[in-house]
Design a protein around this nucleic acid. Structure first.
Lengths: 486, 486
DNA sequence: ATGTCGGCGCCCCGCCGACAA
DNA sequence: TTGTCGGCGGGGCGCCGACAT
């Protein structure tokens, strides 16, 4: 009988998938990874998806790949299904999502999409340690950081000499690993001894990889791993060529977009920083609460070595398409940025608008005056289809009757209500500066410019759920360049 | 520093691909695997390609996949490039091929395609052994079959007591493995001792897997492995959904077909019995030297346990499309077959015509009389495009002027000549029975029917390079049903 | 001819505190 | 507080022929 090296026979029934513990999955995925809830609206960026595959294949999409002119750079989708997975060999976490491009909107789903933005997952008790050479050598066991042991492990009976106990922790595949936890040495320290080397060899861990322990609500120990950034496993290259993979992504999305049929993608949060499925509400909030200008200052979250988070400050240095040929006017990483700290060599020099947070200066906290757009919205073309304007024109949902503009901070449900009650949409304003967001170049404005005030205003408007809309006859509106200083 | 379990540091330079030894690759691929030569014409079957991926993913293509109505079930391609590969982790062999769909033909390439059919790769000296429990346990070494050791290994110095030597063998990645080869025990036998367990654990071999040794022309030892049929590694599922993979295959092929642009595929000979790139000459010979009928007897090659070949006899029990919706009138495994031996449970019940050999009864070896079709060829439809008739109508190369039929045994170069010199094509006959090959149902003929004679005739005609062609006025031809018995 | 096992030597895995960073 | 190392004891890796098939 075939037995694995660790003595555990392989699962005889491949079809049965045990459900993965969501807390453990998220702990392994890292603090920055959030998955949109099922039943909400999301934006799918095929460009980002392609990027993830390129990272996995260590090969970019090249010129052989056909263009899909009818495939927009982003698709509004209803998220039908999310299942969590972990690679059977590497324990690499990934999620499978079923998306369906939509052109009509369900009110409950819109509401759910709004509410999901506010939900915060509770912090759980866990610790994460990067393995040292001693931890992974065959010479000894695992040195447990003291705070971690005291926070996560069951308390030791210190009447014993030495204090010791047996720990059982389950991994993502629900395999149990047992360790001897002992408190000894001079000075005293927590160690995992017996059982540890089996774990290291079974998971094929090396110095630099990380291990994390979680105590779940039932005080059960869970155990996950995070591998150091190693070469992308281009193992899948033996199945499908890189070109075919990229084509598959684009063709599948194009087919689903044309037919409004569901399609399935895999999101691998640690393979590459390509979060290509974005909650619609998050996108909307980001796009319409921030005025993006060259030179603008922002903050952005990054993951620390020990699975914490910290913010880095940066400046927007340019706004341009990554791929002007294939993905023109895409918002996928169209912001070129520089970072304040010189040690920022590893941080990306391109980000998307929903990844960054505006820098709010306390000086500007007082509410700004209500403002109106000075420029009338251009009257719609004939034969336009129903649109959600703040998603750009390529989404393909246009409404010839109601030339709605949507304003910063307008919630999805409010927007939906307006769609159903067109009379409410009259005599409201069009925040014209928003149009500049989709433009390829924004005017350069001094760092003390007014755009940040506008961003602040938009946030405040959102808090108050103010509604205003376009179009109608030319109205008195406030162009950002003309906004009065406070 | 990260070091693999076997103490060998991973290759620091992933970009440098050492060329794989072709002999070793073919030995690992098995005796039935032949790759078409570069520069020849091949047929590419997207359906078979999709099948291979489905086998790798353990999931068939399902209904979500769009139809590509403009993608024929087979594409004539020029084979631009073939590179041999082996998976870095599993040593699984696969080949990368660059194909370009064509509609014009280069004479040299046609000639090469013809000649390639006749070339036989020389047999090399190698042995293959399926590992036993003792071979893979940590308790001992590897028991070398006596004949294998005497044929492959350098001769031992039997003056030593015991006779022993150090062997060095290189694997597909050009890694060297050293073994102590000793002749000892009672009774005496050849054993590999020191070094063997490192190899077993390094390659993660288990009982049931096979190992093979080759001695190349420079008397260097080469070492390969073949894993037992284990669960398909659906590891790639963490990158791309099964649907997207299938779509990628079809869309890539459709794009290449429409633009006559090159595309790249991976052929994994041991993942599944899906040989979906077929030399054009092999296809042509198979299709036009055999009359396929229900009840027809045939032989087919299979690989034996020890990497030999043997033929099994079978009977054609049906002719039908595997997938009448997606791939109508495809020749991909359109023959349903039964096998003579009851132990045939593992053999496929569907094969393609180029996989089988006709059963030639010695009684019929004497040359049959020349025959002519009694039925006139149906005059061509208007607006037909230029075609290669023996490829069916969906290939899309039609010639309204010359309603050429092509006859059994007509070489590609000869056919090409006819295309360039239409006058040569006059006053020749159309073997009308060939048309039945593309029909979904063939008439059932008693097992002593005449079709086998016709198949034989076709072979002989091919050997003599006889030419005859259609159309012209109805001619005196011999229909197979009316062929006189010998 | 070759698969499996008992015997057993020795290597190295793995537990210990020392010591230093 | 915790990473690394020398010390060292014992489990199991791995080499041997016996024996069976």
């Amino acid at each position: 009988m075939r037995v694995q090296a660790n003595g555990v026979a392989p699962n005889p029934c491949e079809g049965v998938r045990k459900s993965i513990n969501p807390e453990l999955w998220h702990a392994c995925a890292g603090p920055l990874v959030t998955l949109p809830p099922v039943g909400t609206y999301v934006l799918y960026f095929p460009q980002g998806h392609s990027e993830q595959v390129a990272a996995s294949m260590q090969k970019d999409a090249d010129a052989h790949i056909p263009n899909y002119p009818n495939l927009p750079s982003k698709l509004i989708c209803l998220l039908h299904n999310v299942t969590l997975h972990a690679d059977a060999e590497t324990d690499e976490v990934y999620a499978q999502m079923t998306l369906q491009p939509v052109n009509t909107y369900d009110k409950d789903a819109l509401l759910a999409s709004d509410l999901a933005l506010k939900s915060n997952k509770p912090q759980m008790e866990f610790f994460c340690k990067t393995l040292t050479a001693s931890d992974t050598s065959t010479h000894g066991g695992f040195s447990v950081p003291r705070r971690a042991a005291e926070k996560i492990f069951p308390p030791l009976d210190f009447l014993l000499q030495p204090p010791a106990q047996e720990l059982v922790a389950r991994d993502l595949h629900d395999n149990a690993w047992t360790f001897r936890h002992i408190f000894r040495g001079q000075p005293k320290r927590h160690l995992l001894t017996t059982g540890w080397s089996l774990f290291v060899s079974g998971k094929r861990l090396f110095a630099g990889d990380s291990v994390l322990f979680i105590r779940d609500e039932k005080s059960q120990l869970l155990l996950g791993i995070r591998r150091a950034n190693r070469q992308p496993t281009n193992i899948s290259s033996s199945v499908l060529s890189s070109d075919s993979m990229h084509i598959g992504i684009l063709a599948a999305a194009a087919h689903a977009s044309a037919n409004h049929s569901p399609f399935t993608i895999f999101y691998n949060p640690r393979a590459s920083p390509s979060e290509f499925v974005i909650p619609l509400a998050k996108y909307n909030k980001a796009v319409y609460s921030q005025q993006i200008t060259l030179g603008m200052r922002f903050r952005m979250m990054f993951e620390t070595e020990e699975s914490g988070t910290r913010r880095y400050m940066g400046t927007i240095t340019g706004i341009s398409d990554i791929d002007p040929v294939r993905w023109k006017n895409s918002q996928w990483r169209n912001l070129q940025v520089g970072w304040d700290e010189s040690s920022a060599g590893e941080r990306r020099n391109r980000v998307s608008i929903w990844e960054i947070e505006p820098v709010v200066t306390p000086f500007f906290i007082c509410p700004p005056p209500f403002f109106r757009s000075t420029r009338p919205r251009q009257l719609g073309m004939p034969d336009e289809e129903r649109t959600i304007p703040w998603l750009g024109e390529e989404i393909g949902i246009n409404d010839p009757q109601s030339q709605n503009g949507v304003i910063p901070g307008l919630s999805l449900v409010q927007w939906m209500n307006m769609q159903q009650n067109p009379r409410l949409t009259n005599s409201t304003m069009q925040p014209d500066y928003m149009r500049s967001l989709t433009g390829p170049v924004l005017q350069n404005i001094p760092s003390t410019d007014l755009s940040r005030q506008l961003g602040l205003q938009a946030q405040i408007l959102q808090q108050n759920n103010l509604q205003f809309n376009a179009p109608g006859p030319p109205q008195q509106t406030q162009h950002p360049d003309q906004h009065p200083k406070l």
